[in-house]
């Protein structure tokens, strides 16, 4: 049957590679733009120029050279704001998702492996948290903590830890019942070493996939909070604030909404595709 199992693999690696490389390429481009923003942005993202307001993008009549993607209602360059916006987006994605992941996965592992009171308390907390509409919860948290990047990150971690806790708890419970866990325990390993050394590596692919997914979600949450004017200040270039501006000026300058929206689509899609791809690549069962 060796030939039969080889069949689906024949086209597996190539399509998998493409699914890893395309998103990785977009995210790298974004990272590069974020790092080099001061050098590659054609204009100051904050510079207002009322003589240059609502310039259309380069492919339309009435565009100005140098303002490739047009300008917004205050005459600020859309491309430059998007490049600087990538900084905020990636910063929030990396920091918020990592904190959320560490916090949620830890609770999930503890609940799944130790069971008992750990599980009861954590599961009940998850249940209470899931009864909140997440967007409203985020808005409320930021309102309580005050606007700013720190609040946005804290709000994401305080809301989305349940996603990690739920999934990792379930997977840990499955792993904990496996024979290899018993044999490690019989071999003299204590519970914490077993958890870290035997179970964690097996749930890691899921953690990585969720982490990637969470990065995409973090970008969206930041955009949503900017949209309702609760992220960092309204003037700062973020994709969310551009979208909010664009939504208001939609009938006069739709490009202010379109380009950051495209960036958000690609970024969210890239994170989730990359997560799925990495999970498949590192999953010991699928290997």
């Amino acid at each position: 049957m060796a030939d039969a199992t080889a069949l689906p693999r024949a086209r597996g690696p190539r399509s998998l590679n493409l699914r890893l490389w395309l998103p990785a390429a977009w995210l790298s481009l974004l990272a590069l733009a974020a790092l080099l923003a001061p050098f590659i942005a054609p204009h100051d993202p904050l510079a207002q120029d009322l003589l240059m307001e609502r310039l259309p993008p380069f492919f339309m009549a009435g565009s100005e050279p140098g303002y490739w993607l047009g300008t917004d209602s205050l005459g600020r360059d859309v491309l430059s704001r998007m490049i600087y916006g990538a900084r905020v987006a990636l910063f929030v994605a990396l920091i918020a998702a990592t904190i959320t992941c560490l916090f949620g996965s830890t609770l999930g592992l503890l609940a799944g492996y130790y069971g008992g009171w750990w599980d009861r308390v954590i599961s009940r907390l998850v249940e209470i948290w899931m009864a909140f509409p997440p967007v409203l919860f985020a808005v409320l948290l930021v309102a309580v903590m005050g606007t700013g990047l720190f609040s946005v990150i804290a709000a994401i971690a305080l809301i989305d830890w349940t996603r990690f806790a739920r999934v990792i708890r379930a997977e840990t419970m499955v792993q904990a019942r496996m024979d290899y866990v018993d044999s490690a325990r019989i071999g003299g390993a204590n519970r914490l070493t077993t958890l870290a050394g035997e179970i964690l590596p097996n749930v890691l692919p899921s953690i990585v996939a969720l982490l990637m997914l969470e990065m995409g979600i973090a970008v969206i949450v930041e955009a949503i909070l900017s949209f309702v004017n609760l992220s960092i200040s309204t003037d700062d270039p973020t994709w969310g604030s551009m979208i909010a501006e664009g939504r208001g000026a939609i009938h006069f300058a739709w490009w202010v909404l379109l380009f950051p929206l495209i960036a958000l689509f690609l970024t969210v899609l890239s994170f989730s595709t990359l997560g799925e791809g990495l999970k498949q690549r590192f999953d010991p069962v699928l290997q």
């Binding site: 939504r247 909404l257 929206l261 689509f265």
Partner: peptide
Amino acid sequence: LSIPDFLWGLLFVLIFGV
């Protein structure tokens, strides 16, 4: 599946509004 409702909403606003 991986695109959340917020982004779909914005896209529809753009398409059916403009």
